[in-house]
């Protein structure tokens, strides 16, 4: 530890604060990890101790089992060595946070994953004033422009009704943490019940227990009789669609809810019947606005279309660089519930 140490350093194990002796969202085991949110690419097993928001802690315990987890509410501050840290809403999924780190008056913020538009469920994104901002840019190209949530949800609802009218089951692929609950909370009244895959139901119940108001769902079990639920909407992780698990429901119309569905090519590759462009990551305008709102003069892009987005910010007069991380952003191709991405061959 020395006075010349930067506030944060990008190392092989993750984003390191040498002064505070902790890492943020590390991808290798470290003694002390601050976690922005509970998705598997940001919150991995094997850390000596975890510090995160209470909601993230609840999901982490569900995913990783009993761990040493300390919690800290949004806006609360804590001194770790010479570093002052606090969590601020990232709007990505319930409990998700940006991490603010201040050392000797210099402030850095790590966004984790975030979206700027409120989704009615996650705590809305709050810009953090800082000197340096570590940002994701999963959808950091201007072809990504999200439509208002209400419009897309109305389309999902219409598809559910049309599907039910043809006697089929509506099968919707969505992330187990965040996307699934956001859909549950925002979908209009449907023609039947909502059935959930075990991975989705597990997280949903954790969030309910933590106090989130979420509509009633019927968990799918081996004993579930598909015929007993006419007009049903089934929410499952994207990887479960097209598997034996999904085929038990008989004739179905399949759809994916993902920001990638904005691109026709990817809609076609996933070969679902429908694709709804709904993302828990900021679109291009959201990313740009978020970066500018921090008032920072240095930006580090961690994952996504980093080269294009960094150049775009450079054109705006910011000092923008790319740092290598192992975050994957929104990956509709990922296996449903793996703890860590597949190991390198």
């Amino acid at each position: 530890m020395s006075r010349t140490d930067p506030v944060l350093r990008f190392e092989a194990a993750g984003i390191h604060c040498p002064t505070g002796g902790f890492f943020i969202d590390p991808w290798r085991p470290v003694a002390r990890a601050l976690i922005t949110h509970a998705h598997a690419d940001h919150a991995r097993s094997g850390m000596g101790a975890y510090l995160c928001t209470p909601l993230t802690a609840a999901v982490l315990r569900h995913r990783l089992g009993d761990r040493r987890i300390e919690v800290m509410d949004y806006g609360e501050t804590r001194q770790i060595g010479d570093a002052r840290v606090s969590f601020h809403p990232a709007g990505h999924v319930p409990g998700s946070a940006q991490v603010r780190v201040e050392i000797g008056g210099e402030v850095w913020a790590v966004s984790g994953d975030y979206k700027t538009a409120a989704d009615g469920l996650a705590e809305p994104f709050a810009p953090v004033r800082c000197h340096a901002f570590v940002t994701e840019c999963t959808f950091g190209l201007p072809v990504f422009r999200w439509r208002p949530q209400a419009e897309v949800m109305a389309e999902v609802g219409a598809w559910w009704h049309e599907t039910a009218a043809t006697g089929k089951v509506a099968m919707l692929g969505a992330y187990s943490l965040g996307k699934a609950q956001r859909l549950l909370a925002a979908l209009p009244e449907g023609p039947g019940p909502v059935l959930t895959h075990g991975a989705v139901e597990g997280v949903t119940q954790v969030l309910r227990d933590a106090g989130l108001a979420l509509p009633e769902t019927i968990p799918v079990t081996p004993d579930t009789d598909p015929k007993a639920h006419p007009g049903a909407l089934v929410i499952a992780p994207p990887g479960a669609l097209g598997t034996a698990w999904a085929r038990r429901f008989g004739p179905s119309s399949t759809a994916f809810a993902s920001g990638w569905m904005a691109l026709r090519g990817i809609r076609r590759r996933r070969a679902g019947d429908r694709g709804f462009a709904v993302s828990d990551h900021a679109d291009f305008a959201g990313l740009t606005d978020a970066v500018l709102a921090t008032g920072c003069d240095r930006v580090f892009a961690t994952h996504g279309y980093t080269a294009s987005f960094a150049r775009w910010l450079g054109d705006k007069g910011l000092e923008a660089g790319i740092v290598a991380t192992e975050y994957t952003g929104e990956d509709i191709d990922a296996a449903p519930e793996t703890e860590t991405p597949a190991a390198a061959p």
Binding site: L141, P142, V143, F144, R145, A262, L263, R264, G265, Y305, A307, S308, R311, W312, D315
Partner: peptide
């Protein structure tokens, strides 16, 4: 948008008509 960002977008979308429609 600057031309280079248009081209970066086109490289990802892979379809000029769609790139323009989206941008």
């Amino acid at each position: 948008l600057p031309d280079w960002l248009f081209e970066d977008s086109y490289a990802v979308v892979g379809d000029l008509a769609e790139t323009i429609a989206l941008l």
